[in-house]
């Protein structure tokens, strides 16, 4: 298990390789479908300090408000591939070092990992309370009224958020390797 403190330098991220198990400490920011569309259309300024050398988490959490503070009740990853049209531009613009989600992403994002110096971190899909318990504090929420709970930008301070690198800055992707392998199997099983 490799321990990473956020924000993190490009140099340190470039050391990471597919298969590395990571434990994250510091701030990660949730952003999913509506947030990505908004970022590439408006390039909001408030995101800049949050994402520079930081981490985007594809997640729409279940949150509970007690008094003035928000608590993450359930916060597993959502499917990342939906952000494929946007992610490369977002990574480049804000200099994001970690994209966290599930299911992996495509060639554009893989190329951005190489160009920007970033990795894709695969969290365990559905492991929602387990990952929520690594959120020690909800630091802030942005655009909650406009986007709603699942789509808002949540700033989470995490301590020991676990994931595995499945796309690295050296052009390697576990997902494309597995796709090629399973396609051969499919063709053999189907008989085409």
């Amino acid at each position: 298990m490799i321990r990473i403190e956020l924000p993190v330098s490009e140099k340190d991220v470039r050391k990471l390789k597919v298969g590395d198990e990571i434990s994250l400490h510091g701030t990660i920011v949730t952003a999913r479908d509506a947030a990505h569309k908004l970022m590439v259309e408006e390039w909001p300024k408030f995101v800049e300090p949050l994402l520079k050398n930081g981490a985007i988490y594809h997640c729409g959490p279940v949150m509970k408000k007690t008094g003035k503070s928000w608590k993450a009740v359930a916060a597993g990853p959502t499917t990342s591939i939906r952000e494929e049209p946007y992610e490369a531009a977002v990574m480049d613009h804000y200099k994001v070092r970690f994209i966290i989600g599930k299911g992996g992403m495509g060639p554009k994002t893989l190329k951005a990992c190489k160009d920007v110096g970033a990795v894709y971190l695969h969290a365990i899909g559905g492991a929602a309370p387990l990952l929520a318990d690594t959120v020690v504090r909800t630091k802030a929420v942005h655009l909650l009224d406009e986007l709603g709970v699942p789509e808002a930008f949540w700033e989470f301070e995490v301590d020991g958020f676990k994931g595995i690198v499945t796309m690295d800055s050296h052009g390697k992707s576990l997902h494309s390797a597995l796709l090629r392998k399973s396609k051969k199997k499919r063709d053999a099983i189907i008989g085409i």
Binding site: G60, V73, A74, G76, T78, G126, A128, P129, A132
Partner: peptide
């Protein structure tokens, strides 16, 4: 803890 298994 009576929490959703998955946030979705």
């Amino acid at each position: 803890t009576s929490r959703p298994i998955c946030q979705d």
